[in-house]
Nucleic acid binder design. Sequence first.
DNA 1: GACAAAAATTAGCAAAAGATAATTTCACTA
DNA 2: TAGTGAAATTATCTTTTGCTAATTTTTGTC
Lengths: 185, 185
Amino acid sequence: MREDSIENNTHLPLLQFATSKVIAASEIYIPEGKIFKKIIYIKKGILRIFFLTASGEEKTFFFRWEGQIAAIPECIFDNQPTRQTWQALEDCELMEIDFDIVEKLSANNISLIKTRLGFAEKMFLDALKRVESFILDKPEERYQKLIIQKPEIIKRVADKHIASFIGVTPVSLSRIRKRLASQKK
Amino acid sequence: MREDSIENNTHLPLLQFATSKVIAASEIYIPEGKIFKKIIYIKKGILRIFFLTASGEEKTFFFRWEGQIAAIPECIFDNQPTRQTWQALEDCELMEIDFDIVEKLSANNISLIKTRLGFAEKMFLDALKRVESFILDKPEERYQKLIIQKPEIIKRVADKHIASFIGVTPVSLSRIRKRLASQKK
DNA sequence: GACAAAAATTAGCAAAAGATAATTTCACTA
DNA sequence: TAGTGAAATTATCTTTTGCTAATTTTTGTC
């Protein structure tokens, strides 16, 4: 099992370049349109990353929580402004590291590049798992899998955010929950 | 723009370890359950990667075509048997390289590891794009985007394979096509 | 604890999708 | 080119989802 926690890997030295940041619950951490070239480590709290649609709806793309590393691929890899908004769902404590520094440090540090490769592969696998679930499962099953795989998330995050995360409307998720509850009896 | 073609990168030397392989149209290239630890480069043709469900349905996970690199993440990263089947949809010409060799060569070759990192990042971005489309778009829109982004694929691949690729049944895709055709008039 | 605001649920209706089967079209091969 | 099998379309019916709005529940704050 891989663990994408900074503490568990061999690159603690990176932490000396990190700065702390605190975000209060419900605050916007990174607004849409920003070119955010940092790697962050979440010490505490949950972040929600969402798209704002033309009709003003917020569609949750993913969540990141304590112990995880996060970054914005488009910004880091392609120097493009992000199309998503990052919001703290709880009071968050973060560590930020400029990606430029990571780049410089890894230019001739094969071990650090391997670590980055490991992260990229893990992220890729996670994203594939998600695609798989959209291909194979009904929304109902995606919800059930989420409950099994990450039970806390259901308790810490509003249903409406879970809804778009699994690709349905809040109303539809409410009906799914009702169906599941009645099946249990 | 990244291009995931072997010829376009600086690692042509890898090719000296590659062996050729030809697969006839409709043949199974990699069966479910195999631990396939090779990197392949597709010189010609299209491969379809699908899940076989408990009820015997084939759900297309993705396609790979000429000019692309492919590998099975679970096998390469985690040494696990693949849960998908790889099938040639056209006569295919492939180059295969043992992943062990890539591992050995990249152990102390920073440039090669960077190339691998680049591939992993590109794959990750592609997978994210796909998730995004499941979150934001209706099946109809996913189909339209596919037509725009990869028009040839529609012509070279059976509709029923496209259907599960965008997350619907073949019958439903047929209705989508009918709706779109009538809107055009 | 009372109040206000947000979230979740419910209801009613329309649209879309799934399941199954029949029919038509297409593609391949003898 | 005729025939066969697979693919695509169409039809019918059921289930699920989306949309909108009303109602209930929950949450947070004073």
